[in-house]
Design a protein around this nucleic acid. Sequence first.
RNA 1: CGGGGCGUAGCGCAGUCUGGCAGCGCGCCUGCUUUGGGAGCAGGAAGUCGGUGGUUCAAAUCCACUCGCCCCGACCA
Length: 509
Amino acid sequence: MAKVPQNAISPTREEDYAEWYQQVVRAADMAETSPVRGCMVIKPWGYSFWENIQKNMDAMFKETGNQNAYFPLFIPKSFLEKEAEHVEGFAKECAVVTHHRLEAGPDGGLVPAGELEEPLVVRPTSETIIGALYAKWVQSYRDLPILINQWANVVRWELRTRLFLRTAEFLWQEGHTAHETSEEAWEETRQMLRVYRDFAQDYLAMPVLTGVKTPNQRFPGAVETLCIEALMQDRKSLQAGTSHFLGQNFAKASGIIYQSREGREEYAWTTSWGTSTRLIGGAIMTHADDDGMVMPPRLAPTHVVILPIYRKEEERAASLEYAEKIAAGLRKVDTVWGGKVEATVDRRDLNAGEKGWDWVKKGAPIRVEVGPRDIEKNAVFVARRDKGPKEKYGQGREDFIAAVPAVLAEMQANLYAKAEAHRAANTRDIDDPKEFYSFFTPKNAEKPEIHGGYAMSHWCGDAACEEKITNDLSVTIRCLPFDREKSGPGKCVVCGKESPGRVPFAKAY
RNA sequence: CGGGGCGUAGCGCAGUCUGGCAGCGCGCCUGCUUUGGGAGCAGGAAGUCGGUGGUUCAAAUCCACUCGCCCCGACCA
C-alpha cells in the first residue's frame, strides 16, 4: 500500500491558496494552459460544466425576450475609436491583426505579408461592431427594442493570467439591447442583473451582492455599471457579472438613430451585459475543498458516478451489468429542477480506490460503489461529495434511485448555505479607520495569510476617499448596494463626512 | 510593465556552484498477481537539458542574447 497524502489536493487552501486553485483545476481535469500565451484549453469536464451554464442561462435570456445572434470576431480599428472613453479603456489590451497573408521568409519561416489598409482588432467586447449593425437595422421606433445576445470568445491581452479567472482569450455571452426610452433601457439593465443574480445563486449556489459600480470602476463608455459580486474562500471578492446602462453614448458613437412617434430623430438607448468562463473560476473558489472540485449538482456534468467493483472476471461482468442497470434506472428519474438525472458508469479498468478519488477530485456530486455484496443484497454503497470522503452509507437499490433527486437538491442547498455562512462570517461592519486598516493587513507580510473579507463601511461618495483606500490597501469598493440605505447613515471611514449607508470594501480578483 | 523564482522524459524534480557517459520519483507500455479508500512484483519504452550564438578537446553546467512559465505588485471594461 503506497503512502498517500491526507488530502487529494496539495497544498491545501490554508497553505497556499493560489497554488491550491491551480492544482484543483488540474486535478479535476477541467482546463490547462496552452502553448499560446495566456490562453487556456478547456477540457471536457470543464467544458461540459460550461455547456450546462450556457444551456441554463440561455433559457433565462430567452424568457426575457432576448434572442441569440452572431457578429464578427474582427472590429475595424476606426469602429473602436468612435467612443472616446471606450477606446481609452480598451486600447492597452487589444490584439491587432495587421496582415492577411504569410509568405516564405529567408530562413524557411513565414513572414506576414499583405498589410491591411485598416488594422482589425480582435474583439475585446462588441459594443462598437454591434452598434454599427444596429444603426443599420434601426430606422423607426417600431424597430425597437432590439434584444440580442451572442455567445462568443473575446480577447483581452492581460498581462497576468489565471485559468478561468483571467485569460487572454475567454468564452462569454454579451447581450446588447437598444431601446426607445431611457426608462426601458434602465429596466433591461436591471432585469439582466436580476437574471445574473438568480443564476449565480440558484444554479451555481454562489451567493452574490448586487449593486452599482462606483464611477471609477464603470465600464468604459457606460453611464452606470451594475454588478454581482461573490466572496471567494480566500475572502477576496469576484466580479461575476456586469450589466451596463450605456445611455445614448454608444448610439451617438455608432449612429443608432430612430424616428420617434412624434416624427423626431432620436438616439436609441442601449445596454450591454456579460458573464464569462470566469463563473467557472468562481464556482471553484466558492465550493472546492482540499480534496478538489465540488460541482454544484444543478450544473454538474454528471450527477451520479457508478463505480463497478470486482475481483474476478466473472464478477466484473456482473458488476458492470448491475451498474448499467442502476444507471438506466437513474436516467428515468426527474431532478427537482426538471430534466433527467445524469448517470455515468466508470468502466475504466483501474483500481477501485483510484477511480473513486478521481471522481472526488472532479467533484461529481454522488458516487456509488456496486460490487458482489451489493448485487447480492440488491443495494448500493453511496458517497456524497458534500460529506467527508469516508462517510459512505449502504442503501437498497430502488430506495437509492428514488432518493437521488432529493439528495441532489439537498446538496445544492447545502453548498449555498455553506457559502453564505462563509460570507457572513467574513463580513464585518467597520467604522473605526484603524480597525479598517488592520482588517485588510495580513499579520505575516512575507507570506500573507488568508485575511480580510467584506468590510461594510461608510463612504462619503468622494472618489479621492476611494482612491486612498485602493492605494493604501489594494482594497476597492465592490459596489454600492441597492439596499445601501437600510444600513443607516454614518460617517465616511476615510474622511468622516456624511454617508447615506454602508458599502462593501474588499480585495478583489 | 517593475521585483522575485523557474525552464532537464507526460508530470514533479536532482544534477549547474566546481564543465567529463542524461539521472530519480510518479505516470506510461508488457506480463502475472490484485481491485469495497489513491495496488504489488518483474521487465520495458520514453530526452534537441526552452531557443540562438559564443568560449572549450569537451557545455544541462561557463558567457551573451532571446523566448516562455509561476509568484508578488501595477493594470484589469
